[in-house]
Write a protein that binds this DNA or RNA. Structure first.
Lengths: 163, 163
DNA sequence: GCAGATTTGCTGTATTGAACAACAATGCTG
DNA sequence: CAGCATTGTTGTTCAATACAGCAAATCTGC
């Protein structure tokens, strides 16, 4: 008869059924699932890098678009980012309250707002981006490699044409 | 003096400033942004393919995991999918109400539920997956190619290790 | 020039997803 | 047995997203 079990030094064969890895099944071949997990991981890493900046991905994207296209109309900015016109209002409100962006009258159309970064906003975006490169993108390239990152960007763009 | 403008046949040089494409600026190099856009496009395409099945991506993933691991405990399923224990309850409630999955007493632990698909659930998942392959994944491979899809899956898995 | 349609920014509402604390029942460990 | 951990659940909060409707402004066809 075998020696009675003690709680020390677990023997391999005794490991209970609980820790066998879960089989992904049909999910394993589904691009959408893998894409979502990867996106969540990257956003999570983005948030960690932006700790202290209080800047979520959507807010960063708004600042970046305005910086690259100063004076662009509000509706064009929201459209470029795929953000609903109505939802964009509160998003921009907060950036304006934080004095990072401002609404100005659009020349030639009194309905529209032309959007600009404030000087503070320009500096803030530059700092945030530098931080992002130094931490977030650095970690990304650590697991991917620079060449694979460019490759991945190309593949993702193809997928975006699905919509 | 130039001929006065008419509204017909616009001359190239006369196109107003409105339709120049928006510059993505810093966003262009940010993996997270491109990932998110691609993921939204793929999920959108998933939803179109699942029209008539009333099955969202998260629901599909739950059915797929249960099918591949019948009898798995509820907490293990939610953990495998990265879904909060608490949020998983309502998700599973609906699948159970639709008679696609069921909670059974877990052998040896009266706290836990062991999850199974019902026969109806098995058929439903099979039908949904067939539909998905025929439409959704087909469109995905149309823009990606089969080789690039496998390549992409590998790159995404590397990213997921970030979390 | 004018009437009708469209655009723009905005408000309000509803839905969804996810994070979190708390709890009761149960299981585990010393 | 006493204390601690796990499990499923409820309830709350917060962010993201969609949508209908509105007033002001603009545009279009006649």
């Amino acid at each position: 008869m075998a020696t009675p079990r003690r709680k020390s030094a677990p023997v391999a064969a005794e490991i209970p059924e609980e820790k066998q890895p879960v089989d992904l099944g049909l999910l394993d071949n589904l691009l959408g699932y893998r894409l979502r997990r990867a996106q969540l991981a990257v956003f999570q890493d983005f948030l960690v890098a932006m700790k202290g900046f209080e800047l979520r991905p959507a807010q960063f994207s708004v600042l970046a678009i305005i910086a690259a296209n100063p004076g662009l109309k509000q509706s064009r900015v929201s459209e470029a980012l795929g953000i609903n016109r109505a939802n964009f209002v509160a998003l921009l409100d907060e950036l304006e309250q934080r004095k990072l962006a401002r609404r100005a009258p659009a020349p030639g159309d009194r309905r529209s707002n032309a959007l600009y970064l404030t000087p503070k906003g320009e500096g803030f975006l530059k700092d945030a981006y530098r931080h992002l490169l130094a931490q977030h993108e650095k970690r990304v390239e650590a697991v991917l490699g620079s060449a694979d990152k460019q490759l991945l960007l190309g593949l993702l763009d193809k997928l975006t044409t699905l919509a």
